[in-house]
Amino acid sequence: MNHLPEAWGRPRNDVYGTYDASYLQSSMPNQHTQSPIVTGTSVVALKFNGGVVIAADNLASYGSLARFTNVERLKQVGTHTVVGAGGDISDMQYLHEKLLDSLIIKEEYQNDGHHLRASHIYRYLSKVLYQRRCKFDPLWNTLLVAGWDDGKPFLASADLLGTTFSAPALATGFGAHLAVPLLRRVCPDEAAVENITREQAVDTIEECMKVLFYRDARSLSKYSLAIITGKDVEGAAECEAKNQSWKFAEGIRGYGTQVV
C-alpha cells in the first residue's frame, strides 16, 4: 500500500484519476482567512436586574453539515465574565484557549488584588479583533461579552471587523434577526433592565433558543446557558430546547417519515 499522504483514501488512480496534489505545493504565498470553515451560529444574551443571561448552542457546522454537536461556545473568563462566540470555531478556540487563558493566567500570577473584569476583557478582545482586521487577517468571529462589572450587568458585542457596540439585549448571527425582536419585547432599553427578573430573563433566552432551533438550519436544540450575577457564574451545559411543538409539520410532505 502506498503510504504517501497524497494517496490517503485514494487507493486506485486508475479508478478515480490521479490525485490533485497541487495544494500541497508550498510555493504559494500564505493565505489569510477569506471565509470561515467550521462555524458556530448565534449567541444570545439579555441583561436582568442583578446579572446577565447568555446562551449559545453546541453545534459546529461544516457548511451545511452538522459536523460537531458537542462544542462549547461559551467560555468563562475570570470570575464574573463569560465570552460567547459565533463564527469560525478554530478562531474561537484560538481566542478562548490561547489568548484569554493566558490573559487570565498572567493577570492572576500578579497576585496583587487586581482582576480583569468584563469591560476590561471586552476592550482587550475588541482591540485584538480590530488589529487583526487591520492586518487583513481577521479572526472570523462575532463575540458577546457578558459579565458583572462595577456593580452592574455588562453586555457588549465585538465582531471580526472590530465593530463594537453595547445594548441590554444582544444576539449575533441569525439571532440578530430572529432573537433580537423577542428580546427587545422584554427589554426595549436600559431602563427596562431594572424590571426584569432572573427567571424572566432565563425564560426569554430559552424561548429564543427554541425559536432559533425552529428556524435556523445551522442550529441545534442542545445548548449551553450561563447566568452571571454579582455572586458568580452559573453555567448550565446540555440544555435542551423545551416545549417544542412540531404539530405544524404533520400535514406537510417532506417532514419525518413519509408513507407515500
Partner: peptide, 12 residues
C-alpha cells in the same frame, strides 16, 4: 481552493 458553502449570515 474554494468551498461551496455560504457565509454565516450577519457578516455580509
Amino acid at each position: 481552493m474554494s468551498l461551496p458553502f455560504m457565509q454565516p449570515l450577519g457578516y455580509d
